[in-house]
Design a protein around this nucleic acid. Structure first.
Lengths: 166, 166
DNA sequence: TTGATTTCCATAAATTCCCATGGCATCCCT
DNA sequence: AGGGATGCCATGGGAATTTATGGAAATCAA
């Protein structure tokens, strides 16, 4: 199904220019999903900040194409389609990974993550969380707070692994 | 699908001469869709103000060609075709991006956006909102008012992403 | 001429590019 | 096995370039 596979959790420093390194492992997948051509050698990331939550959703180029195909399969002009366009297209940005393997977190993305001017000035930590077809970027502080209780809320998650009925 | 891709939201100042900078990222796409020739080096924008809403729809030259192809695929002389021609062709203007990366918002466009004489005199903020094949220009005030509730109206838009049934 | 529009110039802030460093892990050689 | 050597990775700092934007000058139109 999905060729690529973003996995794992990584903590990376964000400096006062909002620069952050993409974990090498994830970079490999971005490169695979956006092969270089004549104009462009650097892989891009599609960062979506309009889909709710205190984080950005990040797709490889290949992954984004699949996402857009789904959106565009809804009827043009329908309310849902408009809403999807605002959330996933207007509220998204393409960013290039530079030659040092870094990106700059765009203002809108930082806002969504709850990064304050103060956070930025001092530098802060970001968490990259793999989700197979995409990865999410969180402010580490938020990530830890929102995910730490998984164990207690769902003590026996293994048992719930069976596929839903059709 | 679409090579070019207008994305993201940008806020830009409009001065009392109605000048406004095109966000650099979007300018790149306009340049790509309207390569310079012997006569003309500056990229053009097709601004459509007849298609409803409190905003103008903006296409690259390449995008506009695709749009016209769609319109012209409807039967000549049909009521729909006539209406489409009025909305998208008659009610549109081509504007050139100047060497500083700016355009002047034409009166008809300003009118559609709901820009008052007073707004203009004092200067105001415009929002550029990417929609892949085009971008929209809004008065920021209007844009914020009309889109801010997406989150609350559609708190879990992600869940509605599933493809429609065939 | 006068008012409006377009071109040109100026600049501060933001962004991008380039180089440098320290830390790990791996490889390689004796 | 030891111990460099090598290379990639995360990160920092500064230089160089682009942007966004304001204002003045030049051009155009009525």
């Amino acid at each position: 199904m999905v060729q690529e596979a973003f996995k794992g959790e990584f903590y990376q420093k964000v400096d006062s220019k909002a620069r952050v390194s993409i974990p090498a492992q994830m970079r490999r997948i971005l490169e695979q999903g956006d092969p270089p051509d004549a104009e462009r050698t650097r892989p891009r990331i599609v960062m979506i900040y309009g889909a709710g939550g205190k984080h950005a959703q990040c797709y490889s180029m290949a992954g984004a194409r699949r996402l857009y195909a789904t959106i565009y399969s809804h009827e043009e002009g329908s309310e849902l389609r408009d809403d999807l366009e605002i959330a996933f297209v207007s509220r998204s940005v393409d960013v290039e990974v530079d030659d040092d393997g870094r990106i700059v977190l765009p203002p809108k993305v930082r806002q969504r993550m709850g990064v304050t001017a103060d956070d930025l000035a001092k530098g802060f930590s970001a968490t990259f969380s793999g989700k197979l077809d995409r990865f999410e970027i969180w402010k580490s502080e938020t990530y830890d707070a929102e995910t730490s209780d998984i164990d207690s809320v769902n003590p026996d998650i293994r048992r719930r692994l069976t596929p839903p009925k059709p």
